[in-house]
Simulated scan of single mutants.
Amino acid sequence: MTVSPDDARHLTVATLDELWNSGSPMVLPIRGEPACRLRLDPKNRLITLVTPYESPEPDVANLKNIGFCGVSDGEDEFAELTVRIEDSVHGAYALFATVVDGLQIDKMPLAAAVAAGLARHRHVLASRGPMSTEKEVGLLGELLFLEFLIHQIGAGPATAAWQGPLSEEHDFTFDSVHVEVKTTSSDRRRHVIHGLDQLVPLNGVPLSVLSIQLTRTTPQSGRTLSQVVAHILKTARGHRVAVETRLTSVGWQADDADLYPTFWTLRSQPRAYSVTGDFPAITPDLISPVVPNFPLLSDVSYTVDLTDLHYDSLPDPMREYVESKMGQQA
């Protein structure tokens, strides 16, 4: 496809491919006013439009593969609009051609030209957004426990124990106990159980539910999900790749770190509840005898309120993480 054949201001597809496939960075001025130039960086798969800065700035905060910044060069200020190329370079180049035409031919303000280009070439860029608050809180609870374990038993054993992201039945597995982490931001320990098998002990290993309560707080007394992730990746050292793999599998994207501005802290000390005979768990063994055509059931979820249930301990080295059961009333 040849873009804007009327004045040859833009590259043909053949020329674009030749330049991009060369692998060499280059700057391509585009004739017209205001001055515009494209920086091609094939090695890092980036294309950047540089043009004089003007406000308001384009709104690209919710787009995954595009970024904007203002830069100063002496007394001059420039706007830099950058697209990261995930697939073909053609779509991104067509986007920039549309933006430049809006600036130079239609004399549109910068923000309007970018908005028009994005509207026309929306397929080039993926929208980004944070995971739901429920998922954010759930992941944060698992990471806080992982962080504790890294300091207690080391990054390797702690990471190996974190099995939930690998689609295993329970979040953390040890020889002495399996731990299912449940986290809430409410003032009661109300937790959603997903599926009839989530609270089924495996291979005779005891199972405990770790109940964590979080609350929103200030930067002085709490941390964001992104800050906790950064600290864990730092302390994981040689096991960082394994941690990153698990984070990706649960929906974490490093490029979206700025989308999690909420500061969280523990509302109370975590508690552990042994999944034994008096725990309010719905399992196949309990309900299959009384539910007609039980195998036809699927996607069963239910909520338990553990606030007033007697809690238990966890074995070492996890004992210090939970509230001692000695402190509860008989």
Rank of each mutant, 00 (worst) to 15 (best):
G70A: 15
G70D: 11
V71C: 10
S72P: 08
D73K: 14
G74I: 13
E75I: 14
E75Q: 15
D76V: 06
E77C: 15
E77P: 07
F78Q: 04
F78W: 12
V83K: 04
I85A: 09
I85S: 12
E86T: 10
V89T: 04
H90N: 10
G91P: 00
A92G: 00
A92C: 00
Y93G: 01
A94C: 10
A97D: 05
D101F: 00
G102M: 04
L103K: 02
L103W: 02
Q104P: 00
I105T: 10
I105E: 05
I105K: 12
D106L: 14
D106N: 15
K107H: 15
P109L: 00
A111L: 01
A112H: 03
A112I: 09
A113W: 02
V114G: 07
A115L: 08
A115I: 04
A116C: 05
A116K: 13
L118P: 06
L118C: 11
A119E: 13
R120I: 10
H121A: 04
R122G: 13
L125D: 08
L125V: 12
L125K: 09
A126T: 11
S127W: 13
G129C: 05
P130Q: 04
P130F: 02
P130M: 09
M131R: 07
S132E: 05
T133H: 13
T133L: 10
E134W: 06
K135S: 13
K135Y: 13
V137A: 07
V137N: 07
L139Q: 10
L140S: 05
G141F: 13
E142N: 07
L143R: 08
L144G: 03
L144D: 03
F145N: 02
L146W: 07
E147H: 13
E147G: 07
F148W: 10
F148Q: 08
L149E: 07
L149P: 01
L149C: 02
L149A: 07
H151Q: 09
H151F: 02
I153L: 06
A155N: 05
G156M: 15
A158H: 12
A161W: 11
Q163G: 02
G164K: 02
G164M: 00
G164S: 01
P165I: 01
L166H: 04
S167D: 14
E168R: 11
E169R: 14
E169W: 15
H170T: 03
H170Q: 00
H170C: 01
D171E: 05
D171Q: 06
F174K: 00
D175K: 08
D175I: 08
D175M: 11
D175P: 08
S176P: 12
S176I: 14
V177R: 03
H178C: 00
V179Y: 01
E180M: 07
V181A: 00
V181N: 00
K182H: 09
K182V: 04
T184D: 01
T184P: 05
S185G: 06
S185P: 10
S185M: 09
S185I: 12
S186E: 15
D187K: 14
D187Q: 13
D187C: 09
D187A: 14
R188F: 06
R188L: 09
R189S: 11
R189H: 06
R189T: 05
R190D: 05
H191G: 03
H191C: 07
H191Y: 07
I193F: 08
H194D: 11
H194K: 14
L196M: 11
V200C: 06
V200N: 06
P201K: 01
G204I: 01
V205D: 02
V205M: 06
V205K: 01
V205R: 03
P206I: 01
L207D: 02
S208R: 12
V209C: 00
